[in-house]
Design a protein around this nucleic acid. Structure first.
Lengths: 183, 183
DNA sequence: CAGTCCATGTAAGTAGTTACATGATTGC
DNA sequence: GCAATCATGTAACTACTTACATGGACTG
């Protein structure tokens, strides 16, 4: 998966591993994240596979940078991946639900403490997403290229899902906290 | 993680790898799934680590079964894990959002086809969860042990989150389908 | 002069997936 | 006879995480 994400970003412009890490953190981070170690090793592998090329520039004063550029083959691969729709359910992994499922032996206080911390975490995330949405809406007004305007519709859509998810989580946490309090 | 799930189930009663696979599929499956290969290898490792013991019974007529039983050490480990609350955000991985994020170059038809299939998938999941909830509510009425009644509150809570998640997903899919249609 | 940002990498380990492999029983 | 269910495992691989490793520039 991380390959396609990197190709997706490099399809806009050449970037370094560091740039890609930041791009991931600031945009796709809420639905797919990666450590820099994985990004750097994957980029190297992708270069071997002919999906990207790299230019190493020794920085005078600044740090050295290795800039990656997508190849025709890389574009092709991204395009093929995007054209084959996802027709199966993807599996979700939710550690908190695992914990709650087996919480019969725990005290109510212990569970409530955990749920309350989680509520704070998800409240913070929702606030972040709202801020990101506002920033994006402002930027969208003055986008130069119509092609990027189209892209921004999809970026916004993923953010909206992020917000719906956090809202659903918060509602559920409140409901569950109430349930546990009344036990 | 899978270790704790297996311990969680074995904490109720001794079970075989096969039983555990089914238990996972029918209950925790919607928030954590595992292949049988991982379950069998993990159980073997857990036996080496002293968290479980196994009894092999050659079946006459029936297939052979290896039944695993949790040890005191296993119970202790489960208990410690449950007592240390989750205080960090867990990372979400949503392939569909990755795809949508990079869908600027795709045709509206291609995107709509994918979103529509996804809507069907999530509608089906929601229906499944509703059915499971009804079954669980009926079972909960005639549960023998009060301790299992307490457990069932938490099982129900995880199901409720599943339903909220699917509902949020469906609402978002409908919204996004409308957005793309109006492009 | 301590901490953060820029910038790149490797090594080792854990977790998870896919494929291979076997074989009996039950129901249609 | 064919498919599904019961039942257990191994091997190979891919993906992901954690830790180690370095070093200059800028900021307070």
């Amino acid at each position: 998966m991380i390959q396609y994400i990197l190709l997706g970003f490099l399809n806009y412009q050449p970037m370094t591993g560091y740039d890609l890490k930041r791009a991931l953190d600031h945009s796709t981070g809420h639905f797919w994240h990666a450590y820099h170690s994985q990004i750097y090793t994957t980029l190297r592998q992708m270069e071997k596979d002919g999906l990207v090329t790299s230019q190493f520039v020794m920085g005078e004063g600044q740090p050295d940078r290795r800039t990656y550029t997508i190849t025709e083959q890389g574009r092709e691969m991204l395009s093929v991946w995007l054209s084959r729709p996802l027709t199966e359910a993807v599996s979700v992994k939710e550690e908190l639900l695992v914990r709650l499922f087996f919480s019969g032996q725990r005290s109510n206080e212990s569970i409530l403490a955990e749920l309350t911390v989680q509520r704070e975490i998800h409240q913070q995330k929702l606030a972040e997403y709202r801020k990101m949405q506002q920033e994006m809406e402002e930027q969208a007004k003055c986008l130069p290229l119509p092609s990027l305007q189209r892209d921004s519709v999809f970026w916004m859509a993923t953010l909206k899902m992020g917000m719906r998810y956090e809202q659903a989580y918060l509602d559920w946490l409140s409901e569950t906290i109430q349930t546990v309090q009344s036990l």
